[in-house]
Simulated assay, not measured.
Amino acid sequence: MPDNPAPKAPPVRKRKFLVIADGSPEASKALHFATLRAAHTDGAVTLLAVIGPADFQHWLGVENLMREEAMEEAERVLHKLAAQAYDQFGVRPELIIREGKLREQMAQLISEDPDISVLVLGAGTSKEGPGPLVSSIASDAAGGFGIPVTIVPGDLSEEQINLLA
């Protein structure tokens, strides 16, 4: 009788919460919610900053300078949010910077990383609406990402977010 080894368990994957790091107050609310969810569910947080494509092809030096400044700003925002996540909740987020159009880069990252399972966005509180990204995703029935989208209202207090997450 041959020995049948026990079937291998699938590799353990850590559910990741994706937060868009754009430096807005809404991003901080989304991060607060995502880091708490990650801490409560043994998950992880990925922070994505997207630098828009430069459009100064005739002046390569200006384009390079603008790209460098945008990269420095993206790094500053990512590190500020990462410090907030670690200091408040003990979560060390994965930091990613990409260049291109925001929705395209979000979709590409989600398709490349099967562990990203929830997109967490913060909604603005201005009378113009919840913000361009939230409005864009809300107007597209499925969001086009193949994962759930959690929208954190911008007027929630830290205590309310703590209770929800």
Rank of each mutant, 00 (worst) to 15 (best):
A34N: 05
A38S: 11
F33H: 08
L47K: 03
V62T: 10
P114C: 04
L81V: 01
L95Y: 01
D55L: 05
L78E: 07
S28V: 12
D140Q: 11
A83F: 09
G52T: 03
K29N: 14
K14S: 12
L121H: 04
S157M: 00
S126D: 10
A82L: 02
P93A: 06
E26S: 15
L65S: 12
P53Q: 15
K8R: 15
R67N: 13
V134M: 05
P130M: 14
G61Q: 13
V149N: 01
E75D: 12
E99W: 02
L78N: 05
Q84H: 11
E159P: 00
S24L: 09
E159G: 01
Q84N: 06
A138I: 12
S24W: 09
A83R: 15
I161E: 00
D115T: 10
L48S: 06
P2F: 11
I96L: 10
K101Y: 13
P130I: 09
R98A: 07
A30M: 09
V149E: 00
A38H: 07
E68S: 12
E158R: 13
A39W: 04
S111N: 09
A85T: 03
K29R: 15
V77K: 09
A82R: 03
A49V: 05
N64K: 14
M71W: 02
F17E: 08
P11C: 11
A54V: 14
A138K: 13
G154V: 01
A44S: 10
L60I: 14
A70K: 08
G131T: 03
E159C: 00
S136F: 09
G131Y: 04
S135Y: 05
Q88E: 11
D155W: 00
A21V: 02
P7N: 14
P7T: 14
H40K: 13
G154Y: 00
P5T: 10
G144F: 07
T150G: 00
D3A: 15
L119N: 08
E94T: 13
L163T: 02
I110C: 12
K80S: 07
I20D: 08
Q57V: 06
S157A: 02
V12Y: 14
R15V: 11
I110N: 11
R92I: 05
D55H: 12
T41Y: 06
V91G: 05
R15C: 05
K29D: 06
G122N: 03
V120T: 05
E68D: 12
P25A: 08
D3W: 15
G43D: 02
